[in-house]
């Protein structure tokens, strides 16, 4: 787990490439009486993408705003390149950039003027033509920003964030409003950035996006991180599912008990389906053991498991569980 690696990095020489560029520790953020972020910790290394997922109002944007240096933490610390980003000191601001959740473009400038302004303000910019090609807006360069479509504006937001060659990039729902092709293109761009060593913090409500891009991820709900780790680690904890059509002569109570698994019966298309969720045991072969046991059970009864499906948990399962579970806790 990254936790141990991180203590090493703090002691090791500064040129170590694995030293985290973004460090957030026990961050708390209050708005008056309301605590929007309640003790969040994570870190991001060069070339790594950390996805901060979570329910609406979970505190993702607030966390990013703190990293961007717009507000001081109520408690805890944030560090970017080892510095406090509050007020955007020069050593931080020239090396970071962001796509904001709400765009922030000057509507009365043209696309060309927008990029030219950004280029002239930056220390070591990419050329606007390169950006236009990357974001696929070369044929719209003469238009005023207010004349662009929602998705086109979003692409321009991304283009502006890339233009300054940031080493740390905060992407707050960057693909919202993009069509599937533009989204794939954006994923390709982000993958390239990672390869170049950019540390990326991404928030998104498209879980597929996180599955494809994230090296590590966290799921937040009401200010707290509920799940954290690599995609594999996160999914492993949430189990494999084995489901099949419940034979008409089997009652729910007759289903066999499997070690380390829970069974649930649901109605779909007016038929009953049994689903075993296997959470315990070795990740590599626990599904195999469950299926083997169920096949043996079916064999004894002289039948087959119809419509047998085995699948790992998806990020969506985990997400819904987090959103749901916590909601239930509050309801109790």
């Amino acid at each position: 787990m990254p936790k141990t690696a991180n203590t090493n990095a703090e002691i090791s020489a500064p040129h170590t490439t694995t030293e985290p560029t973004v460090v957030v520790r026990d961050l708390r953020q209050r708005y008056g009486d309301f605590e929007a972020v309640k003790g969040v910790s994570f870190e991001i290394r060069p070339g790594e993408l950390f996805a901060l997922l979570g329910t609406n109002g979970a505190g993702k944007t607030t966390t990013i705003e703190t990293l961007e240096g717009f507000r001081a933490p109520s408690a805890g610390t944030v560090r970017v390149f080892g510095q406090d980003p509050l007020g955007q000191p020069v050593g931080v601001r020239e090396r970071t950039n962001a796509v904001l959740q709400g765009s922030g473009l000057m509507e009365d400038l043209s696309v060309d003027e927008t990029l030219a302004l950004a280029r002239d303000l930056a220390a070591d910019p990419r050329e606007p033509d390169e950006i236009l090609r990357l974001i696929g807006l070369a044929d719209k360069r003469g238009l005023r920003v207010r004349q662009l479509s929602g998705g086109q504006k979003r692409r321009l937001d991304l283009g502006l964030a890339l233009l300054t060659r940031p080493e740390v990039l905060y992407l707050d729902e960057p693909t919202t409003g993009m069509d599937p092709e533009a989204r794939h293109e954006t994923w390709r761009i982000i993958t390239d950035l990672k390869r170049e060593g950019v540390a990326v913090l991404l928030t998104t409500h498209y879980l597929e996006e996180a599955e494809r891009l994230a090296d590590r991820l966290a799921i937040m709900h009401r200010g707290e991180v509920h799940v954290e780790g690599t995609l594999g680690e996160v999914l492993a904890g949430w189990g494999d599912r084995v489901s099949f059509l419940l034979p008409s002569d089997v009652r729910t109570d007759d289903l066999p008990e499997l070690e380390g698994a829970e069974v649930e019966v649901q109605t779909r298309e007016q038929r009953l389906w049994a689903t075993y969720t296997v959470r315990e045991g070795d990740v590599a072969d626990r599904a195999h053991h469950a299926v083997a046991a169920l096949m043996a059970w079916a064999g004894e009864r002289g039948g087959t498991l119809q419509h047998l499906q085995v699948r790992g948990a998806s990020l969506e399962d985990v997400f819904l569980r987090v959103a749901d579970g916590a909601a239930n806790l509050v309801g109790e």
Binding site: G69, F70, R93, T96, L100, L105, M106, L121, L160
Partner: peptide, 16 residues
Amino acid sequence: RREALVLKRLRVSGVP
């Protein structure tokens, strides 16, 4: 511009 996030956009792109 503050309400339209234009100022914030300028700040995050490194303009003092």
